[in-house]
C-alpha cells in the first residue's frame, strides 16, 4: 500500500507543517511516511505545494509525486490555478477549505469534499499575522477521508508540536473539521 497526498496552499499558511504532521501521524499509526516540500517561490502569499507519502512498508523512493491519491486545498482561491487537479488519480479525492458547493472540471469518479476550515479557525481564535490558521483543521478533514490515520493520532501529533493552549485549540480545529467535512457533488 502506498498513498500519496498533495497539499496546495500559500506561502505562510503552514502547508509544509501540515504535510509533516500528517507524516508524523502516520508513523504514530505504525505506518511509514515521508513529507516532501517543494521549493519554488518561498514567499508569503505565493502558491506552494507539499506532499506526504504514506506506506505500510519502509519507503525507499525519493522521486517526486506525480499521481496523488488525494489533493488538499487550503485556500479556495487556488482552485483557479489550472494545474490544481494535475495528475490526480481517476479515483482520487479532493478536499477543499470552502463552504461552497464547488464547480470542478473533475472526472465523475473523483470525489470532492469540503470543510469550512477558515470559519473553524476564526471561531477558535486561530489567527496569526492577519491570517486564519487552517492547516490543522485540514488535517482533521483529510484524516476522515483517508481512513488510514485516526483523528486521535492527528490530535496527538498536533499537541506534541504545540504545547498548552495552542495545542488544544489546533487539535480541536482538527476534530471539528473531522466532524464537519461534507461530500459535495
Amino acid at each position: 500500500m502506498i498513498y500519496e497526498i498533495r497539499f496546495h496552499g500559500r506561502g505562510g499558511q503552514g502547508v509544509v507543517t501540515a504535510a509533516t504532521l500528517l507524516a508524523e501521524a502516520a508513523v504514530f499509526e505504525g505506518l511509514w511516511s515521508q513529507a516532501i516540500p517543494f521549493f519554488g517561490a518561498e514567499r508569503r502569499g505565493a502558491p506552494v505545494v507539499a506532499f506526504t507519502r504514506i506506506s505500510n512498508k519502509p519507503i525507499r523512493i525519493y522521486s517526486q509525486i506525480y499521481n496523488p491519491d488525494a489533493i488538499v486545498v487550503l485556500d479556495e482561491k487556488l482552485l483557479q490555478l489550472r494545474s490544481i487537479l494535475q495528475g490526480l488519480k481517476s479515483n482520487g479525492i479532493i478536499v477543499v477549505n470552502s463552504s461552497e458547493k464547488l464547480k470542478f472540471p473533475k472526472i465523475p469518479s473523483q470525489r470532492i469534499f469540503t470543510v469550512n476550515a477558515t470559519s473553524i479557525a476564526l471561531k477558535l481564535g486561530l489567527v496569526v499575522a492577519g491570517w486564519p490558521v487552517v492547516n490543522t483543521a485540514m488535517l482533521g478533514a483529510i484524516a476522515r477521508v483517508l481512513n488510514i490515520i485516526s483523528i486521535e493520532s492527528i490530535e496527538e501529533c498536533i499537541r506534541r508540536k504545540w504545547r498548552g493552549e495552542m495545542g488544544e485549540k489546533n487539535s480541536l480545529a482538527a476534530r471539528l473539521a473531522y466532524e464537519n467535512i461534507r461530500e459535495r457533488d
Partner: peptide
C-alpha cells in the same frame, strides 16, 4: 513571467 502575482495578495 511568473503569472499574475496580484493573486498572492492578502491585503490590498
Amino acid at each position: 513571467a511568473v503569472g499574475k502575482t496580484g493573486f498572492w495578495r492578502t491585503f490590498k
